[in-house]
Nucleic acid binder design. Sequence first.
DNA 1: TCTGGGGTCCTAGGACCC
DNA 2: TCTGGGGTCCTAGGACCC
Length: 357
Amino acid sequence: MSAAAEQPERGARRWVLHVDLDQFLAAVEVRRRPELAGRPVVVGGNGDPSSRTVVATASYEARAFGVRSGMPMRLAARRCPDAVFLPADNPAYEAASAEVMAVLRECGRDDGGDGVVVEVIGWDEAFLQWDGSDPERLADEIRAAVRTRTHLSCAVGIGDNTLRAKMATGLAKPGGVHRITAHNWFATFGDSPTGALHGIGPKTERKLAELGIHTVTQLAESSPTAVGERLGPRMGPYYVSLGRGMGRTEMEGAAYVPRSRSRETTYDTDIEDWDRIRTEVAALAARVATDVAEEGRAVARVGVKVRYRPFLTTTRSRTLDSPTRDPAVLEAAALEVVDRFRRDRPVRLLGVKAEFT
DNA sequence: TCTGGGGTCCTAGGACCC
DNA sequence: TCTGGGGTCCTAGGACCC
């Protein structure tokens, strides 16, 4: 085979596209209940706006009232009392997500190429790796295919790596297309605060500010070693690379293999009775054991999480003598761990986690 | 109006072993 | 002897994301 034959067609190069479904949970609910179209819809928890839960997704109509993801349901109900409050129906969202991902996997073949490699990164998000010359055309194909075959709408970010594609999506929403590459990275984000970067939250933004690093350009020009001395030997250099707009160009197309499975519950009323707490932990362990059995994996470690009033969270865990998926062993381990917590204040949340080998 | 649930990866100190 | 370092595991907590 000649070298020329191995080359991609003229002008072709590696692109990464980030696909993000618009108001996904609310859109799935409206899709199956068309009478909700145009109304403010709030999805989260058990659907009871007076319960101690938060908003998972608000429709654009609800956002107009100031309702946001992560907001306590009670506040959402106060801001938008006429909204339709719906319980989260995870199986429905998983099924809708699978529909969308199947559509994405078939995109990108129009010009005789090898198509796309899809890396699913959440119910409503995926990265696509694609070698070609006109990524905007692919983005249009994706949006049309998703709309036609699933009746859902998405935004598409185009980049030369994962970070730039993901950041481009933020400028594409809702339902548009935007391209960010090395050519316009600093022109677009150079003056933005470091906290605008995917992977830098409020805590890290503050620590960087204490080093005199406020903007993306300043972060990009910082010494990875110096930042590492303050933020950790791996995270420091990683943050500097984010400032430079660096990201992956190879997607992981293989099926996702979870590292852990957990179940946790916040109680509407705090619990002070430790016999009841042990009962609840045993029940959570049983749910985890069921999940684990479905995966057919062996558990190496069991952890328990306790959140006390007002919001003090602690964890304890234990490595098992040998990996197992025996529900009785998992329950016994969880109960042994829960007995190591202090019992001097009310409990608002309990959780049990299994970590795989 | 108090702050969900399900995940990931990193950090740092101590134990333990050579 | 009272003095090393390296390597790995275990554990608790931190930060971030969807």
